[in-house]
């Protein structure tokens, strides 16, 4: 995890280090239960394959969000504060898949209340297949003494 990323260290076009994770049935079930998602397609192979018509149990939406959070804040460090995430699941992620997270910086800005923002296009790919894309807007400190987590109310414009 980065100690503390500062806005001035980031530029449009920068890429983040990739993160590769081998998905197992435990990955899927652990993530579903951690997010209190009891729906059977995330733990019941027969339900997933015979009812949903998919290849296996698959990662649920909230758990994918948590993976994206982990990936982005690994890069920003603990002062990185998520403002917005928009993700689109194109195909499912199954046990046996090796999911690879990658990202590129698409915007760097300071808003009118002085908060530093980085926009990222994050991809979760499996082999050549893009499984999920995620547009992230994350606040990072504009200086060593800044901390986006201190912002409240009108000073926090997501």
């Amino acid at each position: 995890m980065t100690a503390a990323l500062i806005l001035s260290q980031v530029a449009v076009g920068d890429t983040l280090p990739t993160l590769a994770v081998d998905v197992t049935p435990t990955t899927v079930v652990l993530g579903a239960l951690a997010s209190r998602d009891w729906r059977p397609m995330h733990h019941d192979y027969k339900f997933a394959t015979e009812r949903n018509g998919v290849a296996d149990i698959f990662l649920n939406t909230p758990n994918q969000a948590a993976w994206f959070e982990r990936y982005v804040t690994d890069w920003t460090g603990p002062k990185g504060r998520l403002g917005r995430m928009t993700f689109r699941m194109k195909t499912s992620v199954f046990p046996g898949d090796r999911m690879v997270f990658s990202a590129v910086v698409t915007a760097v800005e300071t808003d009118d209340v002085g908060c530093g923002w980085v926009s990222l296009d994050v991809s979760l790919t499996v082999g050549e297949r893009v499984a999920t894309t995620c547009a992230v807007r994350v606040a990072v400190p504009v200086g060593e003494n800044d901390n986006p987590w201190r912002r409240r109310g009108d000073d926090w414009k997501v």
Binding site: S35, N63, R70, T73, D74, P78, W149
Partner: peptide, 22 residues
């Protein structure tokens, strides 16, 4: 549970002194 499921080592979730500061 969430951090374990995603191998998230962000210290604001694991270290109370960091959480207090940040």
């Amino acid at each position: 549970n969430t951090c374990a499921a995603t191998q998230n080592g962000n210290p604001i979730f694991w270290d109370d002194s960091v959480a207090e500061t940040v």
